[in-house]
């Protein structure tokens, strides 16, 4: 997405006083900093590495601050920050990585993980169905690993839709893809996550 779309107005910069600066910085911090954890989590999932995640979040905030006068007050600050970060990531980090993606086009069934667990169940554990009991114990390492293993386009969609609950419409604008593509990538991405969670549990028996 070109910058003009992200930062629509193009008023000439005006000279502002130190107190104006101070006030503007406080407004920026109050509106934007509460989203730092969500941004960091997403940046970590995108770059798969804490150092790059730090840099990506930092650059996102600097860029947002630079263009803060073009942020429409009252609109969704989190979505605005995510749009900036997604752009930065796509334009910079992804180009740099250039890793060939191993996309498998084998068909993945619906309810992949449920079916694997149902096949292997050791009998009921508590009040809930045994499959649900197992899922409630999934560890953050397994999830991180499962998302990291996703091919790029699925990973972005899962991060935005499932971890951050952005609407398909918003994601379609962020990634510049049709809504139908958001839906199909998410559908497949979720199955791939389930497949990876299953593989993780097989490799790390407890």
């Amino acid at each position: 997405m070109p910058d003009e779309e992200l930062f629509p107005s193009s008023d000439p910069p005006r000279r502002i006083s130190d107190t104006d600066h101070e006030r503007q910085r406080q407004a920026f911090e109050a509106q934007m900093l509460p989203h730092i954890d969500a941004l960091y989590r997403a940046a970590y999932s995108m770059t798969k590495n804490p150092g790059d995640a730090d840099d990506l979040v930092q650059d996102t905030y600097l860029r947002a601050y630079q263009f803060f006068d073009r942020f429409q007050g009252g609109t969704n600050a989190k979505a605005w920050l995510f749009r900036i970060m997604t752009n930065l990531y796509i334009n910079r980090y992804r180009r740099r990585q250039r890793e060939p993606e191993r996309v498998s086009y084998e068909d993945l069934e619906d309810f992949y993980l449920y079916n694997r667990l149902a096949e292997s169940e050791d009998g009921p554990v508590g009040g809930e169905s045994p499959e649900v009991e197992v899922v409630r114990k999934v560890q953050v390492e397994a999830i991180r690993e499962a998302i990291a293993r996703l091919p790029e386009e699925y990973r972005m969609t899962v991060i935005l839709a499932d971890l951050n609950e952005f609407s398909y419409q918003t994601i379609s604008e962020m990634l510049d893809i049709p809504i139908g593509t958001v839906r199909s990538r998410l559908s497949r991405g979720r199955r791939l996550v389930q497949k990876a969670l299953w593989a993780y549990s097989e490799e790390n028996p407890r």
């Binding site: 730092i36 954890d37 960091y40 989590r41 970590y44 999932s45 999934v138 953050v140 499932d162 971890l163």
Partner: peptide, 13 residues
């Protein structure tokens, strides 16, 4: 919801 809960525990340094 479990995935979301677990991931949401991660905080920015």
């Amino acid at each position: 919801s479990t995935i979301r809960e677990r991931v949401d525990q991660v905080r920015a340094p």
